[in-house]
Design a protein around this nucleic acid. Sequence first.
DNA 1: TTGTAAGCGTTATCAA
DNA 2: TTGATAACGCTTACAA
Lengths: 313, 313
Amino acid sequence: MTNIHDVARLSGYSVSTVSRVLNHKDYVTTETRAAVQKVIDELDYVPNDVARDLSRGKTMTIGVILPNLDHPYFVQLIQGITKAAFVADYHVILLSSRFEAEIERTYLAAFRRKAYDALIFTSHGLPLAEIATYQKYGPIVICQPPRDSGLSAAYAHRRQTYVQALTTLKVQGCQRVALLMSRPIAVSETSQATAEAYRIVYGESPRPAMLATDVITMADGQRAAERFIASGQTFEAIFANSDDIAVGVQRAYQQAKLPVPVLIGQEHQLSGELAQFPTIDHHCQIVGQQALQLAVSGEKRRIAIDSEFINNW
Amino acid sequence: MTNIHDVARLSGYSVSTVSRVLNHKDYVTTETRAAVQKVIDELDYVPNDVARDLSRGKTMTIGVILPNLDHPYFVQLIQGITKAAFVADYHVILLSSRFEAEIERTYLAAFRRKAYDALIFTSHGLPLAEIATYQKYGPIVICQPPRDSGLSAAYAHRRQTYVQALTTLKVQGCQRVALLMSRPIAVSETSQATAEAYRIVYGESPRPAMLATDVITMADGQRAAERFIASGQTFEAIFANSDDIAVGVQRAYQQAKLPVPVLIGQEHQLSGELAQFPTIDHHCQIVGQQALQLAVSGEKRRIAIDSEFINNW
DNA sequence: TTGTAAGCGTTATCAA
DNA sequence: TTGATAACGCTTACAA
């Protein structure tokens, strides 16, 4: 492994001069530069990035914690993040968490050990307060409303759009509305926004019987609907947490030969377009881009991106 | 920033002893270990990963080059790769290439600079021969048939399944079949496999007029079909390169009030299931897992995963 | 069982 | 404009 000392020795200059040549710094005569470059070319020498990182105290790497890539929300977020990272000349390192707090802790520990310059939580199982204590080791950005945690955040501002969507249901005369969620209200900001929008529009908290949680895939949506059917409840509308999931719901009713409730999806997926129900686009790519910006700049700030209700039919 | 020397000094032991405690090595008495650990805890000391990497000459990081995350193929590949990396205790660093050779070169250069322990190409714009010359800097794995490049590879074995799919079309009496591809035949192994399967089943090379390339999204599929329609050609069947794309095709014919050709999709997507056309599952997650295995182990080997034709209707 | 000291390969400060 | 040398923070022979 040839290193900077070899280049120095063979060129007759010092390592510092070689370093200056490598980093295109000033204070090197054209002749010196040429002579050093010649040796570099001859030896086919390249500097070592790890040594460079150590010396500079920076890795140009952002750790991105994400539970999985099963949901389009996370895929879009990652797309936005990598796109912005490419421009900013940062590397993105993928840290899968499966929503598990204990795994997230291992990444926080790695963050302390200087493995990444900054950390982005696309979702978090850990309490925000616990995450916030690691800010002393570098910038941390979350992709959800930061509440009073003092964390930087880029996130989709959902509630107002949820209110808008539910209002259209109410206007259509839908009184009995079921809500599907990916995670329990207690642990999910998104689920909370959904419940709160319901409260705002319908004037009361959603009753447990009209909720289904842990609905992630189309199959989950189908199962949730089957449980609704089996319970004997009838809903005039179902507010699903993705278009794919809405399709699962549609299927369940069709297979049971029952009238399909009014459906609203989310994430602006192909399936929603096909089945022609309204959807909500959370502009997750933009959220991801902003999150990366915050991570790189170290700015302590919250950026809310408005969601968009799409109702073309 | 407290370091290992501080711990050594305050504990009264040497850095090597501290290092042994940190790395849970033998040859440390219980008392010494306890004493050192006490100082570590008091100082709230953690080792620096970058320094560790430099010293060990390893980063525990695999660079994964991928053009984008727009296609489910790449998403699934990444899922498989990260899943396997998690188990193997490796980090995955995402390197977006947008299919551009010049960008890929920058990653190969970073690889030389020891930025990653190994490299996985989920797709490549560069010639395999050029990529292969970088193997002297560490393991490189590609996700396509490696031909005679001498590169390690994990990939979907597509041709036989393409033959199977096209055969069912032929058996149904479909003579005029159009083929949709994401990239031109000249640059894409997958497109080549498609064309070759056609040759095997139909006894002749596909004519240019029955091909559409650069078809990536559903909208592209729709446009491609519209061009077919405008050209006055009629096809009895269209072999699409994803289920979403097949849906785009379907749309174009429906909007033109024309009979929809027999459709076959790929990737086993939700849309295909909904529209109920046959599809091909390339088991990309498994491909990704195997690719990571190869990258980590450094084994020079090719692993072909059989694709699966799914025809439930 | 513990310690010394030489790496690992850069960058950065300061003197010349 | 160039060079010595001290960081950066850890691991690991080898010696004791």
